[in-house]
Amino acid sequence: MIALDPIVQDALTEIFNLGIGQAASVLSSLIEEEVALTVPEFEIVRKNEFLALAKEQWQGLASIVRQEFDGPFSGNALLVFPARESLQLVRALLSNGSTIDTITELERDALLEVGNIILNACLSSIADCLGQEIVNALPVYIEAEPAAIVADCTEDPFGHVILLRIQFSVQKEDVRGHILFVLDMPAIDAFSQAAQRLIENYPS
């Protein structure tokens, strides 16, 4: 795990929460229900650390929305839910009370849109604060083991993963998931420098 300057850590937490708050309000108006989204914490870990951790704690298939992005730093943004949670989330969002025990095609489309909204909002928030533009491609939906997808996102052995824990509250359901930004070494450098500049310009 990479230790950040506590001020940087605080500033980034705030940026992520701003973004995700934005996403929550978009989702709320979409489904006309209160949606609460928070990022209680985040950390930056080396890719290999993450793979070891994932092998231990994230076994089994997960529902993953993957979006590539490009800008001052480029990489992949992933929204990851364990399969059961993703079903729980999408059913709470669509309030369809379905009894089918696997995710349907339309539900997968909905989950893809939800992932797109959340990931875009986070990228937006980061881009806004850095005063630079981050462009992203269309999202794709994958059911796979998170470790396999992260390994696929970057071949750089010095790559890093920004790991955000997120918590959804919708229709009295609490669903936990993760947002992952997978960056290669140059990208994480660019990100750190941008974050550092942000602090220097931060009104104290």
């Binding site: 909905a110 849109e113 875009n120």
Partner: peptide, 17 residues
């Protein structure tokens, strides 16, 4: 507007829209 201003690709699914 978001796509034009921030160059962000987006998806609108049939069940949510």
């Amino acid at each position: 507007r978001d796509c034009l201003d921030h160059r962000r690709a987006q998806i609108l699914s049939p069940t949510l829209n």
